[in-house]
Amino acid sequence: MDRQSRYKDFSAFLAAHFPFKVQKLSVNAGFTCPNRDGTKGYGGCTYCNNQTFNPEYCRTEKTIAVQLEEGKQFFSRKYPQMKYLAYFQAYTNTYAGLEQLVQMYEEALAVPDVVGLVIGTRPDCMPEELLDYLSELNERTFLLVEYGIESTNDVILQRINRGHTFACTQETVRRTAERGIRTGGHVIVGLPGEDGKQALLEQTKALSLLPLTTLKLHQLQLIKGTRMAYEYERNPSDFHLYSVDEYIDVVIDYVEHLRPDLVLERFISQSPKELLLAPDWGLKNHEFTARLQKRMCERDAWQGKYYI
């Protein structure tokens, strides 16, 4: 890691794999989740409104190929040489039969200039037969499987209606990485009951022990229409919503305790203004990153500084 960058950056990670610029294009393939359809529960995770994930071109009435072609048009005017990763993002993108999943993934890879896949899913939705296929797919294209971890604390996972334990996450991440597949994780910083410094540092220890390639963080956000928004309205004292400067220092503490070779893809999420209740920082991702890097320089901080 270059000390100037202060952390292992995702764009540098992609540059090491591709000799050209690469952009992720979101796909909404019409999946649901086991804790929405009654298999494990109803209502989904308490914080979740998947409208926050989907660009305008991601509509399930459009085929995967059409969604990707429309996404390409947005970027190709400015970057005609750009290549793309099809990002299966909304809901649980391994929650279907193997034949249907293979058809969807292969449809995406058949689109010109699509050079790989990123598949977002849950740790409890990765059967062995799908891992067999993904292992083969990994041999012929770029593949990153990204698991929603959200928390390493089972009490918190139960509170947010996640529907799986951290032990499930540990086992699935290991099974995936053992196949040689790049494996990513996603966590939410500041969930109710998990906003203290010590709790977050315990989380960094648990995550650093997993064979993850990449990690995404983002701040807790309250989104209209979610059960968590209702809980906040009834009991706001249960929640701590970070100011941007406070969150920057929390992220720095977090990153300083992470394994140094973990690739850090993202630190914040940007939800549509019409859906976001709080906190509304009014910052784009690149603006936040610039402020984070400036503060890391002021603190002489870098990823893994206190990793043991």
Rank of each mutant, 00 (worst) to 15 (best):
G97Q: 12
E171Q: 15
V255C: 10
T121F: 11
L217S: 06
V244H: 10
Y247H: 00
S76Y: 05
Q4E: 12
L25K: 00
V155D: 14
V189L: 15
F20Y: 15
T32F: 08
G180D: 10
I149A: 02
H240Y: 07
E265H: 15
L264Q: 06
V250H: 05
Q219D: 10
K273A: 14
L220P: 03
Q89E: 11
V22E: 00
S208T: 04
F74S: 11
T39H: 13
A290G: 05
E70C: 02
V250N: 03
Q89K: 07
T204K: 01
C168L: 13
Q4F: 11
I248N: 02
Y87W: 04
R174N: 14
I248P: 01
G97K: 05
K197W: 08
D195N: 13
N54L: 15
D37L: 04
E128H: 08
R291L: 14
T39V: 15
D238C: 05
D37H: 10
F267Q: 09
R140Y: 02
R266E: 10
Y47C: 09
S269L: 13
V102T: 11
I156R: 01
L134C: 04
D280H: 12
A229T: 13
I223S: 01
I156G: 06
R162W: 02
D9V: 12
G190V: 01
G71F: 04
M228F: 13
A278Y: 13
T214Y: 01
M228K: 06
T226N: 07
K72D: 00
G38H: 11
V173K: 08
E107T: 15
L212N: 07
Y242T: 00
L210T: 09
C58E: 11
Q4A: 12
